[in-house]
Amino acid sequence: MQVKNSVFVITGGGRGLGRAMAESLAKQGGKLALIDLDQGTLDEAAAACSELGGESRGYVCNITDESAVEQTFKQIVTDFGEINGLVNNAGLMRDGMLIKVKDGELQAKMSLEQFQSVVEVNMTGTFLCGREAAAAMATQGTGGVIVNISSVSRAGNMGQTNYSATKAAVATMVTSWAGELARHKIRVGGIAPGVIATEMTAQMKPEAIERMVAAVPVRRLGEVEEMAHTLQYIIENEFFTGRIVEMDGGLRI
């Protein structure tokens, strides 16, 4: 698929990795429909993408709300005429240990709300957006591509029962959807990033960043441009489907 003049929906597109990937596609003439929760953030991101050469619009939508997702995707089709690609990027982290015990006494437990809030955004949101994008692409008859953003944590990580479980689920959706949607000329891929340098990591303590870098074989954090490059590869390579690209600097060996 050519990026130029194709319409891409990006969830969590108002900031961070989502905005970086959107701007990369905009530079190549892609048209962007950005989904996020904050109108101001969306306005800034859409304006930046438009300045880079890609028509762009922002849509405030809670991706855990089925009716809101359905309406948003209908509006995107109305505004742009079609949907050619979806990047399921929106995600939530609420890390915590399953239990905390000190001197034989239970101190704390991960709450059901803490677990389910991450499931709702990362897993249910990915499902709803993927379903609506697939429906639009299949009925258009021109096919398209869906890219789910998983994580190196999909293999399991201490303190991330909720996050790891959802990112594993997001990865399995790639395989399931690739098999189901191929008949409609829809490819499905995934990216499992390690630690990427973003606004969030920039706010971390230097010693915390040093510990993370020490665990990565290439001895640095990933760059948002490298994530964008990986996304572009999946979009443009018509033989790529049903697979996950681990973009982690060799962290998970």
Rank of each mutant, 00 (worst) to 15 (best):
residue 1 M to C: 12
residue 6 S to I: 08
residue 8 F to M: 12
residue 9 V to Y: 01
residue 9 V to I: 14
residue 10 I to Y: 04
residue 10 I to F: 07
residue 15 R to V: 14
residue 16 G to P: 11
residue 19 R to L: 15
residue 21 M to G: 12
residue 25 L to I: 14
residue 27 K to W: 06
residue 27 K to V: 11
residue 28 Q to V: 11
residue 31 K to S: 10
residue 31 K to N: 09
residue 32 L to P: 05
residue 35 I to V: 12
residue 35 I to P: 04
residue 41 T to P: 00
residue 42 L to T: 05
residue 43 D to C: 09
residue 48 A to I: 07
residue 49 C to K: 02
residue 53 G to Y: 03
residue 61 C to S: 12
residue 62 N to S: 14
residue 65 D to I: 13
residue 66 E to R: 09
residue 66 E to L: 11
residue 66 E to F: 00
residue 69 V to D: 01
residue 73 F to N: 07
residue 74 K to N: 14
residue 74 K to Y: 01
residue 76 I to Y: 01
residue 77 V to F: 01
residue 77 V to C: 03
residue 77 V to Y: 01
residue 78 T to I: 12
residue 78 T to Y: 00
residue 80 F to P: 07
residue 83 I to K: 02
residue 87 V to L: 09
residue 91 G to Q: 01
residue 93 M to F: 10
residue 95 D to K: 05
residue 101 V to C: 00
residue 107 Q to V: 15
residue 107 Q to L: 13
residue 110 M to G: 04
residue 115 F to S: 02
residue 116 Q to M: 14
residue 122 N to G: 04
residue 124 T to N: 09
residue 128 L to E: 02
residue 131 R to E: 09
residue 132 E to L: 10
residue 132 E to A: 13
residue 135 A to F: 10
residue 136 A to L: 04
residue 136 A to K: 02
residue 138 A to K: 05
residue 142 T to F: 05
residue 144 G to M: 02
residue 145 V to E: 00
residue 147 V to E: 03
residue 149 I to P: 01
residue 152 V to C: 02
residue 157 N to P: 08
residue 160 Q to E: 13
residue 160 Q to S: 07
residue 165 A to R: 00
residue 165 A to P: 06
residue 168 A to L: 11
residue 168 A to T: 09
residue 169 A to E: 05
residue 178 A to N: 08
residue 179 G to R: 13
residue 180 E to V: 08
residue 181 L to C: 04
residue 188 V to H: 02
residue 194 G to P: 07
residue 195 V to F: 00
residue 204 M to V: 13
residue 208 A to W: 10
residue 208 A to G: 01
residue 211 R to H: 14
residue 212 M to E: 06
residue 215 A to F: 07
residue 218 V to A: 03
residue 219 R to Q: 15
residue 225 E to H: 08
residue 225 E to P: 08
residue 228 A to F: 09
residue 229 H to V: 14
residue 229 H to D: 13
residue 230 T to R: 00
residue 234 I to R: 02
residue 235 I to T: 05
residue 238 E to F: 00
residue 239 F to Q: 06
residue 247 M to L: 15
residue 249 G to K: 02
residue 251 L to S: 04
